[in-house]
């Protein structure tokens, strides 16, 4: 088996590691898993935190190591901070899965002052008539918004 195939297998396994706080999406969907390489026979997975204080990082690291250890003998998980994570790294697949789970994916940042952008649509009814309820939500990466059409509140992954 070539190294390239092995790396592909590692990525496929990583795609099965859910984010502990957003279980609808994987660490690959979110862009937390940055790189997979072989270094002298050792599989090195590089991950990056979403926010400086993200309390899920250690759990993610352990989940990644545990799952990859099923196939690879020698696994190392490295954490890097640079370049800093951005919601632009969330994959199209990830955005769709978030919306399916009732969480609005990050929207476009219109103005520098509007740091978190705005949800494109309510994940429940699809209306674009939405308003912010609170700038901070149930996890570091989310804010709380509300749809003024169907009146349902929803989580929103802040553009970051």
């Amino acid at each position: 088996m070539t190294a390239a195939t092995e790396i592909e297998r590692a990525w496929a396994l990583l795609a099965q590691v859910p984010d502990p706080e957003l279980p609808a999406v994987s660490v690959v969907d979110l862009g937390i898993a940055r790189d997979v390489q072989f270094d002298d026979g050792r599989l090195v997975v590089t991950i990056t935190p979403t926010y400086s204080g993200c309390p899920a990082m250690r759990e993610i690291e352990e989940d990644v190591r545990t799952l990859l250890a099923q196939r690879f003998d020698d696994v190392e998980v490295r954490t890097v901070l640079s370049p800093p994570w951005t919601t632009d790294w969330i994959t199209e697949d990830g955005r769709r899965k978030l919306a399916d789970a009732g969480i609005a994916p990050p929207g476009v940042r219109m103005l520098p002052l509007l740091m978190q952008g705005q949800p494109e649509a309510c994940p429940h009814c699809g209306s674009s008539a939405v308003e912010e309820l609170a700038g901070f939500g149930s996890t570091a990466c989310k804010a709380l918004w509300r749809c003024t059409s169907c009146r349902e509140p929803f989580d929103y992954v802040k553009a970051h």
Binding site: P49, Y51, S52, G53, L133, F136, G137, L144
Partner: peptide
């Protein structure tokens, strides 16, 4: 409640910066 959550979130970010 919203402000409780906001301050906890802000504290978490700042604590993360301090740890680094």
């Amino acid at each position: 409640l919203e402000e409780d959550i906001a301050l906890a979130n802000i504290a978490l970010d700042i604590l993360g910066q301090a740890r680094g």
